[in-house]
Write a protein that binds this DNA or RNA. Structure first.
Lengths: 100, 100
DNA sequence: TGACCATATTCGAAATTGCTTATATACTTA
DNA sequence: TAAGTATATAAGCAATTTCGAATATGGTCA
């Protein structure tokens, strides 16, 4: 991978909300927007815009399931490795998926 | 470390010039600005500004040696781990220090 | 001292980012 | 079909980033 490609990815990780979403997706495998929305303290359009950024850059993929959209991490080894490092250094307890 | 602290660091890595500088410092241990300047295709103020950003955020440290300033990576384990991942995925041949 | 280095800082303009509010789309269900 | 739900998109604006040009600082050496 080219250096600019790597720095582009790191730049996307360089926002706390996006980083948190990626960690949640890594931990939970697949989540719909409403689940993310219930865990993160942001407005729906704001979250949607960040998801859009990550989708367009290929870091996440979304599949429509009826009325909802489920997102998961893309198959990007660099992304996964960096997220592993982040997990290791993060004290923040990334909440698991809400279960009823 | 808090998530915002981690994303702040990743944000700084999310610029190709800064990333390249950090990789060079990691590889070469210590370099003066003029060496960096000779390897990177940027103006001196531009490089200096980026160095300033990295210095202020604690990712690098500089020591004055007569007329020149030598920079090296700070002792930041998270930074080192991420850079290792970047190195692993980077096809770009990071040039070693210029020798005469 | 005065003329050079190497590096840093300042300033201003252009581009980008991040957010809010409003609206659109698309699917579901009554 | 109409109303509701989930998600996306658009428009506008403030804040931030990035860079170039100009200038400042501080050390060296003749």
């Amino acid at each position: 991978m080219e250096l600019t490609e790597l720095s582009d990815i790191l730049k996307i990780l360089g926002h706390p909300l996006r980083l948190k979403v990626l960690l949640l997706l890594k931990k939970n495998g697949e989540m719909c927007v409403c689940e993310l929305l219930s865990l993160l303290n942001v407005t729906q359009p704001n979250l949607s815009q960040h998801l859009s950024v990550m989708r367009l850059s290929g870091l996440i993929g979304g599949t429509k399931d009826g009325n909802t959209v489920k997102y998961k991490l893309a198959n990007n080894e660099f992304l996964h490795k960096v997220l592993e490092v982040v997990e290791k250094f993060s004290e923040v307890e990334v909440k698991t998926r809400w279960k009823n």
